[in-house]
Write a protein that binds this DNA or RNA. Sequence first.
DNA 1: CTGAGATCCTGGGGGC
DNA 2: TGCCCCCAGGATCTCA
Length: 268
Amino acid sequence: MPELPEVEVNRENLERWLSGKKIRRAVVRDRKVAGGKPVRKLVAALAGARVVSVSRRAKHLVLDLGSRGKVLAHLGMTGKFLLRRKTDVDPPGTRVVLELAVGERVVFQDVRRFGHFKLLDRQGEALLETLGVEPLSKEFSPRLLEALLRETRLPVKLFLMDQRRVAGLGNIYAAEALFLAGIHPSRPAQRLSREQARRLHAAIRRTLKESLAEARAPEITYVEEPEAENPFRVYGREGEPCPRCRQPIRRLPQGGRSTFFCASCQRR
DNA sequence: CTGAGATCCTGGGGGC
DNA sequence: TGCCCCCAGGATCTCA
């Protein structure tokens, strides 16, 4: 579920909580997060390290520990970083604890354990190098998107989810962007017109920026917690009326994932 | 290269 | 109420 906007908000939080701070001690509660690599090395690198900065590349986070190296973190499906104070209990699913000042700690929580928190090694660097263009960067122009689309006949939905082409979109924002652009998710990437490429470019930026703003907004907690309502236009709305034409939203399996779209606004 | 399917993992929801 | 099954999904791998 965490895609670019959610990962960016985690980065901003970490930057605030950790940048310039010293990690007194680190505890890895689940060795799986370390990606099969020795936990001792990770813990040793973290203990006593000062965090220089926290950056993001697509859905990956990089904690710069200066001379101690770097940590590569991925939120997987359910990962998030939380700030805990003295008396707070670490939430279920806590995988890593970074102790800061007395009683203050940053926790990596990941219930479903798809996430990673590991030292950035050669392999990690190689992985980062395979990533495609950042969709919110200046470099990501309509022309560049058009050129990338020309490279493959993949259905455009799968194209958008391929991190080696455009990096940071997942199942949700790929569907949302295609809806905003009025493009059918099965359409081969190669066959988008220039105009469609331009619209898709604008739609990607819009949906990411909107969600980023939303994710940044401090959550309002009500006494009686109302079920969070679905903030998306088509995602998770099978059978509900399309916000534009009122026709029912349809669900289409693609690459083992569900794509939600409007068959009337997004023609083949 | 392309696309499908399995895998990892867990909690929540639906059905009975 | 309780149990089972299925689903969700990011990344990666195998297979046709």
